[in-house]
Design a protein around this nucleic acid. Structure first.
Lengths: 234, 234
DNA sequence: CCGTTATGTTACAAACTGTTACGAAGTGAT
DNA sequence: ATCACTTCGTAACAGTTTGTAACATAACGG
């Protein structure tokens, strides 16, 4: 077996040292970073087979970084988190991570997951990318997540703003699951826009530009994507 | 919160072990099977609240099994698949699965979906039956559970609120069986089953919008759906 | 019959959501 | 820098939903 290169992104020095030592014993080549900047630099610096990414990185947001990396590269990512709050957040995200494990974890379990992800990546290199090629079809409407294009039944093209697109993506990542406003807001911002009804407006605008029935209201709960999502792996 | 029993049908031992461990940590009772035969036996053996079914099961075909189970029982089924080709086949939940998720998946996302399906199943037992279009006919009235449409004798369409629809579904799932207010409230996920007479109001409103005779009062007990339900297996 | 109790019905209030209006902030061209 | 334009949030208003309270009515037991 070839030597796999892992990039460990973790700001807790003690944890990082422990993990690195363990993984090296297991035969991985481990490089480390403790911030967003460091991670991106390490990625530019050399080949990385898999990233082990902590969600909470002091200043930086692991989820944000994950998306950032994914936008550019196709490296497998395994996320690590200590807080159950993060779990909540990640449930609503189109994170793009290949796997996910909670601290505290059994080292062997972590190892198993890393190996599984690597195996998968070798077998189907583009699999991690395929998640993004979600195509939404709804009563003649079409949304191609890859091209970011919304097509109306008549063949017209509708232009969505970035925020509207983001909202659509969030729903796309969670078809048929009711999402609360908090979940949606968390997935969209990092800021907590606490008081207002921004999400309501967003949903309203998206409805107006597409189809009012596309997003169903779950009274007292939130909203649900009322369409099914197919993924065309072209 | 009661302990939900999951049946995990997965032939990859490693994956099965990992999933089972994770789900047990999350408070589920997990039993496992690795084949069609095992799955059917486990179903006969005891109560199962939800089935987590891998599409690719070596010899056996998950989709086939899903249909088989559905023909006999009304257990919620969440399908798991690794291959995009399976997605194509499963598109539209034609198999009768309540949800499906692609490998590799975010464990929390899986959890969210499992919970969503369980919630749905509890709230409206007949919802899982959707594939078999429950159609209620009553003196010219018609209710199509799939389209959520109520049609009056004259052909008019009546619009029910979400709560009213939910109530109708509860009756639909228990035709000709008298239901106490407590049972109805429980099925509706009505937290405060306390002193109020919310159910009375609901029934009253449903009667007013449809036909007063549709729901008969069992004095001292509760209410009964006074119509027969046919299921058009389209 | 009559009182008691359960149920139907009306009225009302609180919560939730859709929609409009408007203003702040960002963008690009001149 | 200024202007036109888009985006996107808050505020405010209206319509709907849904529960509680109160009263009227029907059923039941003697």
């Amino acid at each position: 077996m070839s030597l796999h290169r892992l990039l460990l992104v973790e700001d807790d020095a003690e944890m990082a040292a422990m993990l690195a030592a363990y993984l090296q014993r297991q035969g991985f080549h481990v490089s480390r970073a403790d911030s967003r900047a460091g991670a991106l630099e390490a990625l530019r610096a050399g080949r990385v087979d898999l990233i082990l990414l902590d969600v909470s990185l002091g200043e930086d947001d692991g989820v944000q970084i994950c998306a950032e990396i994914r936008a550019a590269q196709d490296v497998p990512i395994v996320m690590v988190s200590a807080l159950s709050a993060d779990h909540q957040r990640m449930a609503g995200y189109e994170v793009g991570a290949d796997d996910y494990i909670a601290k505290p974890f059994n080292p062997d379990l972590l190892l198993a997951r890393i190996r599984a992800v690597l195996r998968r990546a070798r077998r189907a290199p583009s699999l991690t990318h395929r998640r993004r090629d979600a195509i939404l079809r709804f009563q003649g409407w079409r949304y191609d997540a890859r091209r970011d294009e919304v097509t109306a039944p008549g063949g017209w093209q509708v232009s969505l703003s970035s925020r509207e697109t983001a909202l659509l993506r969030v729903f796309l990542a969670n078809p048929l699951i009711p999402l609360t406003r908090e979940e949606i807001a968390a997935a969209l911002d990092h800021d907590e826009a606490a008081g207002g009804r921004a999400i309501d407006m967003l949903v309203g605008r998206l409805r107006q530009k597409t189809d009012p029935a596309l997003i169903r209201t779950e009274r007292g709960t939130g909203y649900v994507l009322a369409a099914e999502v197919s993924r065309d792996d072209a």
